[in-house]
Amino acid sequence: MIISDKDKRTRRLGLVYSTPMGLWLSLFFMVPLLIIIIYSFLTKGLYGGVELPVTMTAYKQMFNPNFLRVLLRTLWVASLSTLLTIVLALPCGYAMARSKHQTFWLGMVIIPFWTNSLIRVYAWISILSSEGFVNEALKTLGIIKESLSLIYNQGAVITVLIYMYIPFAILPLFTTIDKFDFALLEAARDLGATKPQAIFKVLLPNIRSGIITSVIFTFIPIFGAYTVPLLVGGKDSYLIGNIIVDQVTKTRNWPLASAFSLIITLLSTLGVLWMMTSTARERARLKQQPVKDRDDLQINGTAIIESSLKNSTGGR
C-alpha cells in the first residue's frame, strides 16, 4: 500500500518537472514540424503562403532535373567532406584520449568551435579571396603575378565545411576513445598483431558507436549547410540548403520548401535511429554476451601486464 502510494506521488511529480519542457518543445518544435508536413501537401499561394487544394505538386516538383542535380551534388559534397573529416578526426581523437593534457587539447578544439561561425567563414574569405592572404603572400614572394582563383568553387566549399564541422567529429570520437581500454591494443600487439592490425581489428570495432555518432553529427549538418556554400561557393556549388531557402525567401514556394524539409527531416531521423540502435546493440553486446575473442583478449592482456608489472621493477 505504502509503496504504491509513494509511486503515484513520484509519478505525478516527474510529470510536473518535465511538463514545462515537454510543452515548450511540443509547441515550438513538434507543431512546426507537423505544419511543415501539412504544408507540403498544399498548393502554393499567390503571394507566398499556401492555399487549400490538397495536391502532390510539391513532391512532383522535387523531381525537376535541376533539383536532382543539386541533390546529387549535395550528397557528393556531404559524403566527401564527412569522409575527410572523419579520417582527419580519428587520429586527433585518439591522440587526445591518450594525452596527459586532455583538457588543454579539448580547449584547443573547443575555442575555434565556439567562435562565431560567420567570423570563421569570413576568416576563410579573407584568406582565399583574390586579394586575400594567400594571393597577396604569394605575390609578395614573387611566386605568382596574377591572383589564383581559390574561392567560389567546390574545393573552397569542401575545405571550409571540413573546417566548420571537424570539431563535431573530434569531440564524440575523443569521448568514445577515452573510454577504450588501451591495454587491449597492447595485448593485441603482444599477441603478434601488427600496428595496423591492432588498430583496424581491435580499436576501430570497439569505438564503432563513436564513429557512427561523429559521422551523423558531421553528415547531417553538412547536408543541410546553407551559409558556407552561400558565402564561399559559386553558383555551381549551391547545395540543397540554399535551394530550400531560395524557395522560402525568393520563389515563395512554401509547399516545395516544406517537402524538401520533410525529406531531410526523415533522412536525419533515420540516421539518428541507426546511430541509437547501433549504440544500444553495442551496449547490450558488451553487457550480456561478451564476445569471446574480446574477452579472451582482455584476460590475456591483463595477465601479461600484471605479470610484467610483477617481474619488472621499474615501470613507466
Binding site: 515550438f28 518544435f29 512546426p32 514540424l33 505544419i35 511543415i36 504544408y39 551523423i216 553529427f217 547531417i220 549538418p221 547536408f223 543541410g224 549547410a225 546553407y226 540548403g241 530550400i244 531557402v245 522560402v248 512554401w254 520548401a257 516544406s258 524539409s261 531531410i264 527531416t265 536525419s268 531521423t269 540516421g271 539518428v272
Partner: peptide, 13 residues
Amino acid sequence: VLPEVIIGISMLI
C-alpha cells in the same frame, strides 16, 4: 540533429 535550416524554416512557417 536536424539541420539548422530546417528548424529555422519550420519556425518561420
